[in-house]
Amino acid sequence: MIDPELLAAASWTTRPVAAEDTEGLRVTAAEGSDAWRHTSYGFVHDDANGLLAPFGVRDAVEVEFVLDYTEQFDQAGVLLRASAEEWVKAGVEVSDGVPQIGAVVTHGTSDWSVAPVPDWVGRRVTVRASRDGDAITVRARADDEPFRLVRVAHVDPALELRAGPYCCAPTRAGLTVQFTRWERVAPDAALH
Rank of each mutant, 00 (worst) to 15 (best):
D3I: 03
P4D: 13
T13F: 09
T14V: 09
P16G: 05
V17C: 02
V17A: 12
A18F: 02
A18H: 05
A18G: 01
E20D: 08
E23H: 03
G24L: 02
E31N: 06
E31K: 12
G32I: 07
G32H: 11
D34Q: 08
D34F: 10
A35P: 03
T39Y: 09
S40Q: 14
S40I: 11
Y41Q: 08
Y41K: 13
G42S: 11
H45Q: 13
H45E: 09
H45N: 14
D47T: 09
A53V: 01
F55C: 01
G56A: 05
R58E: 09
R58G: 00
V61C: 05
F65E: 07
V66E: 13
Y69W: 14
T70C: 10
T70M: 08
F73V: 10
D74F: 07
G77H: 09
G77S: 11
V78M: 08
V78C: 14
L79E: 13
L79H: 15
R81W: 14
R81L: 12
S83L: 13
S83C: 13
E85R: 15
E86H: 15
V88M: 14
G97Q: 06
Q100T: 05
I101C: 05
V104E: 02
T106G: 05
T109E: 11
W112Y: 06
S113P: 00
V114S: 14
V114H: 06
A115N: 07
P118G: 05
D119P: 01
V121E: 12
G122R: 14
V127A: 12
A129V: 15
A129F: 07
A129K: 03
A129I: 13
R131Q: 12
D132H: 11
G133C: 10
G133H: 10
D134Y: 04
D134S: 15
T137Q: 11
R139S: 09
A140T: 00
A142G: 09
D143M: 09
D144G: 04
D144N: 09
P146L: 09
R148F: 15
A153R: 04
D156K: 09
A158W: 06
L159P: 04
E160I: 10
E160P: 02
L161K: 03
L161R: 02
R162Y: 05
A163G: 13
C168S: 12
T171E: 10
R172W: 03
G174Y: 07
Q178D: 11
R181K: 07
V185I: 02
A186Y: 00
P187Q: 04
D188W: 09
D188T: 00
A189G: 08
L191C: 00
